[in-house]
Design a protein around this nucleic acid. Structure first.
Lengths: 301, 301
DNA sequence: CGTACTTACGGGCTTCGTAACGATC
DNA sequence: GATCGTTACGAAGCCCGTAAGTACG
């Protein structure tokens, strides 16, 4: 195995054209440098330098390997500088996993300012539908950070970003659309839109409903929360959807539940705290979880 | 200074996901590898691996430096392989210096077959007008090989490729154009085209003429031999030009000298024999120096 | 005789292996 | 208790510096 030290010596000699001068610039005794060169030539099996009465000159082989030697030295140097830059937070790669409904309202503004402030950090975003899948990505190291509902089990760090409210969505002509307050028991009297078990809401909702002694009988199931809202607007039944999942121009009628139904939106991070990850989470908690304005006004009236 | 060994360890650990497995593939004890990793992390100043109960996982910094580490290892590996390839003659860079008149007739065919047979070797060709300048390039290491007339002084290897004949060139209406044999004394009676001292022919010709007890009085001088031939064809005087310098469609009249005047064309190589250089010279001597066919027929009649 | 590189040899540091330890499941 | 990684310590090897040697002008 060649050593970087030997390559450094070779490059210095090629640059100065003399073993003695190179030894001086490397703060090294001249025989030591000579020994390094000999070792390198022995390893390659051919002379790299032509010894002249006055200094040395590269052979064909010496000229040919010079570029590669410089490349190796530069890459090794970058290992250190890049590593330090990542530790400092000026470079790196932040892999974020999030619930699909989080992207627009919560993450988009944070990502924008983040990228403006730290352009050296590459950002990748993966959207998932299940809170447990989010946790899995972080646990397995495939993501540095997850943003979404609180998963069923999580050992490492959890930071509360905010709460999102779940509301009843339905077609405007629905009987419940005229009442001011809607309870889970009220909804159970009508057809409902359920969630596919793959979506984390499924398990969470069944648990919540069981806690209230109620059970829904969904006419159909879907994976996406926005799809559930659309189906409800189309009159297929009543859907319980997070406010963050409602598009701003939503045509259905929405009603707040009594008592209100909310769930936490949290940031999941590995126990091993990365400075960039912590900084991003701080930014998220600082901004908090906004309720989409159009939805908020329609709920307030 | 980071060491390639440490980078090799890091890459192996990242590839296998386990210190123990990596140690096995590197034929290294596991504590030794662990120590290397510790040293690398100390140098960079940040952990590169996250220690898990079951194996290890790269941190953000670890992932970021992985590419650079691989690049460094690959470059160091290439230093050896490229060096060996150059020694073997399958790769490299052959810098050829030649007299301008040699390019078309002598070098072009050799270069063509050479490049077809050894495509890994990059070829560069520098054309000069002085034989001593050719020698200087080889001596100073700026060229690996020179092809041209024998220089005045040369210590290192000289290989005879062939001889080129110098002939008298003139306009067809010139008095000497009707005679069969032309001597140097005959020419000295007429106006002649001389060479600039920069062109090696100048010194050589004055020496030859002095040897014959003759002296020319050139009406003008030029650097290029082909230019001298053209000027002669245009009627400005008689020019002594190498046959290799005559274009195939030359419009002037050419006459062989009596006695014939020839000079050696040689290959100059450094004392330090490079295998590729020697092979190229062998090819040159094997092919020899062709006399351009159209010129040969016109001289033979 | 001075310059420039190589070889010879001894001291010091690094690297490696065996052994003992700590943590986690 | 089994697995995985770290720490401890002694031995081997490598790197470096001083000193002597060789080649060239």
């Amino acid at each position: 195995m060649t050593t970087l030290r030997a390559l450094e010596c070779l490059v210095a000699v090629l640059d100065t054209g003399s073993v003695t001068k190179a030894a001086a610039t490397l703060h090294l005794s001249q025989p030591a440098l000579s020994h390094q060169l000999a070792g390198l030539e022995r390893e390659i099996g051919t002379p790299l330098l032509e010894r002249l009465p006055r200094g040395v000159r590269p052979t064909t082989a010496g000229r040919a390997v010079a570029d590669e030697a410089r490349a190796a030295l530069a890459a090794a140097e970058r290992v250190v500088t890049v590593g330090q830059a990542v530790a400092k937070g000026t470079e790196g790669h932040l892999r974020i996993a999030c619930a699909a409904s989080m992207t627009a309202g919560l993450l988009a503004p944070v990502l924008r300012t983040w990228h403006r402030r730290r352009p050296g950090i590459q950002l990748t975003l993966t959207e998932l539908t299940s809170a447990d899948a989010l946790a899995g990505l972080v646990e397995s190291g495939q993501a540095d950070l997850a943003v979404g509902p609180r998963p069923t089990t999580w050992q490492a760090t959890v930071d509360l970003i905010g709460t999102e409210e779940l509301v009843a969505a339905m077609t405007p002509s629905h009987p419940l659309a005229t009442t001011d307050s809607v309870s889970l028991a009220d909804i159970s009297q009508y057809r409902t839109i359920g969630y596919d078990p793959e979506n984390g809401l499924h398990a969470w909702l069944t648990e919540v409903l069981a806690g209230h002694g109620v059970a829904f009988t969904p006419v159909m199931r879907t994976r996406q929360t926005t799809t559930a809202a659309e189906l409800a607007a189309a009159g297929l039944g009543v859907a319980l959807v997070p406010t963050t999942a409602l598009p701003s121009g939503y045509t259905g009628t929405i009603r707040r539940l009594a008592p209100p139904l909310t769930r936490d939106i949290v940031a999941l991070t590995p126990a091993a705290g990365d400075s960039a990850v912590r900084a991003f989470v701080n930014e998220l908690t600082r901004r908090g979880l906004p309720i989409p304005k159009p939805i908020a006004t329609r709920l307030a009236r």
